[in-house]
Write a protein that binds this DNA or RNA. Structure first.
Length: 320
DNA sequence: CTCTGTTTAGCGCCTT
DNA sequence: AAGGCGCTAAACAGAG
């Protein structure tokens, strides 16, 4: 039984791989791209475990960014001073975790470089992403409260307006509870069997995930409200589809209803989630403020690059 | 110098 | 058993 304070399950390793964590961070940003320092910050703000041994896991994380094709490096523009590039998710990375475990992928992402229809050049993807980021920011500035649910990438498949990337944090989190028989934890995280609440336990645990510092826990201004139920969609009895594709190989996920939202999917994001997705500046909590390495950098890619979406970004295959 | 990014290597675990 | 994936460590180079 963990003692309060240090070494409670808040400090235990979350059941996510670095890829998942990174994807979460990226997806949580309005522009769907983040500089490395912001990815660090996101993770540390929400997962106390990662406030220690930063050198270790940050090295691993950088390794993952470089090594995995599912992450795309987007160069800064001259008017975006700062260190490092922005990182975004590859269009088709959403179905990597089709087996339901965010600890281990079943497939690794590989870009088919030989496919003539699939330029998939990082530069092209980067241009497109920058453009999308610009559009998002514009919409954000104009519209105010909510983001247009612009899919980061259109793979030729029209997507419902409520599309949420599989790596959107609410999707990732929500899905955990839908694991049949609670496999997600009991089977996938033997190292911390009891520390993480099984889906069935969640309701009684009440506080949601102990190891996640969602804003509801510490970020008072931008609560994730895991305890409230947004987090645990299962509590609502909402059928959660598997994250992605019903068999389509690399198509992005079908929107996953994570809570019984009204018809208008787009603006109906629960405030807590909306705040996350809109990347509201983390209201620094007592526990998070001083720990972030605060290598702040302007995470505001802007300006338009007028290039059409890479025609064949979908020519990416998850190889086994 | 620090941070960022790339690459290589080894190990453990899991799936097939 | 083999192969794949995730994690960690480390070396190295380049940019700010």
């Amino acid at each position: 039984m963990p003692r309060p304070g240090r070494n409670t399950y808040s400090d235990q390793k979350p059941p996510y791989s670095y890829i998942s964590l990174t994807a979460m961070a990226i997806q949580s940003s309005p522009e769907k791209m983040l500089p490395l320092s912001e990815i660090y910050k996101f993770i540390m703000d929400r997962f106390p475990y990662y406030r220690e041994n930063t050198q270790r896991w940050q090295n691993s994380l950088r390794h993952n960014l470089s090594f995995n094709d599912c992450f795309i490096k987007i160069p800064r523009r001259p008017d975006q001073p700062g260190k490092g590039s922005f990182w975004a998710l590859h269009p088709s990375c959403g179905d990597m975790f089709e087996n339901g475990s965010f600890l281990r992928r079943r497939k690794r992402f590989k870009v088919l470089k030989s496919d003539p229809l699939a330029p998939s050049k990082p530069s092209e993807a980067a241009q497109y992403l920058q453009q999308q980021a610009k559009l998002r920011l514009s919409a954000l500035a104009a519209g105010g409260s909510h983001l247009p649910q612009m899919p980061p990438y259109n793979l030729g498949v029209s997507q419902p307006s409520g599309f949420k990337h599989p790596f959107a944090i609410e999707n990732i989190i929500a899905r955990e509870y839908k694991m049949p028989g609670g496999l997600a934890f009991s089977a996938m995280q033997p190292a911390v069997p009891a520390a993480y609440p099984l889906p069935g336990q969640l309701a009684t645990v009440g506080a949601g995930w102990p190891h996640v510092y969602g804003s509801g826990v510490i970020d008072g201004a931008a609560p994730i409200s895991m305890a409230g139920g947004d987090y645990g969609a299962a509590a609502y009895g909402v059928p959660l589809k598997p994250l992605c594709h019903g068999g389509g190989q690399t198509l992005p996920a079908i929107p996953v209803p994570i809570k019984p939202t009204p018809a208008a999917a787009v603006p109906a994001l629960p405030a807590p989630l909306a705040s996350i997705l809109s990347n509201s500046p983390p209201a620094l909590s007592p526990t998070s403020s001083q720990t972030a390495t605060s290598q702040s950098s302007p995470a505001t890619p802007s300006e338009t690059l007028t290039s059409p979406p890479p025609a064949a970004l979908h020519a990416v295959v998850a190889v086994h």
